[in-house]
Design a protein around this nucleic acid. Structure first.
Lengths: 136, 136
DNA sequence: TGCCTACTCTATTAAATCGATAGGGTATAG
DNA sequence: CTATACCCTATCGATTTAATAGAGTAGGCA
């Protein structure tokens, strides 16, 4: 299941990408438009700014704005930042690899084999889509 | 993330499918072989029996055994039974559909569009694989 | 019949995660 | 200098997850 964090983050990014210009948009405006808890969104936008997707401006007339071109923001990156690993099990994760505590030999694990296929097909989708593809 | 329940369930199914005959195998044996908490596995096997994948026999010499042919058990079915919806958001789920509380119009939702693609590609993988493909 | 074995079922619990909220801090425009 | 709006940490309640406990029931066998 996709976390609300990721869902809200994607919506916010899309909303910002859909702005005519790259002027700062206030958190409150995004939150209202997308029906998101403002405080929760605050923390998500903060993450997205620290990752380098968004810029921010403080004070009156401040807000968040997109830094990069939407087509230069692949979904793989966004998903990894917001949701974490794309793989369904840590032992097949490319960026967040972890050994399973059960499983003496992961090459022989039946789940492992299946999950690699799922990972690759999901990766394909996220690799094919950028923020530009989510825009209206 | 895949739940332990699903992971264990898949391992147990594979283990049973790999048996030479369809004689009952005790929970304890499966649990030991796959490094699974026996009590936890108990409840998983119960679910799999009620769903119709497994049969069981009580008393001495009892245990669980596969009822169907491995190639007649598609991963889509197993995943839905153990893990629940395959879709990452309820609003794109085919078998567990639910409307999002945010989202006035899901056709216009950017997340929706993306998640349909993920669902379809995952569905493809699970549709292509049966329990027979997980066997050694 | 009596006993052992092994599945059946419900309830409980500890830990982790999630979504949301609170509240004070800080930079900037005007 | 003051109002605005982002910055940041802490906390909280609810839910879910994984595991455990323990009593119940059916079956095989002497």
């Amino acid at each position: 299941m996709l976390s609300k964090k990721t869902k809200y983050g994607l919506k916010a990014l899309t909303f910002l990408a859909n702005q005519k210009n790259r002027e700062p948009v206030q958190i409150a405006e995004i939150a209202n438009h997308e029906n998101i808890s403002q405080k929760f969104l605050e923390s998500i936008l903060l993450t997205l700014r620290k990752t380098g997707f968004l810029g921010s401006k403080k004070g009156k007339g401040g807000g968040y704005y997109l830094i990069k071109d939407p087509q230069d923001i692949p979904m793989t990156t966004v998903m990894r930042v917001l949701e974490g690993p794309i793989a369904l099990v840590p032992c097949v994760s490319l960026n967040f690899y972890e050994k399973c505590s059960d499983c003496p030999d992961e090459e022989k694990c039946s789940v492992h084999k299946l999950m690699i296929q799922v990972r690759d097909s999901t990766l394909q989708v996220f690799g094919d889509n950028t923020l530009a593809d989510l825009m209206s």
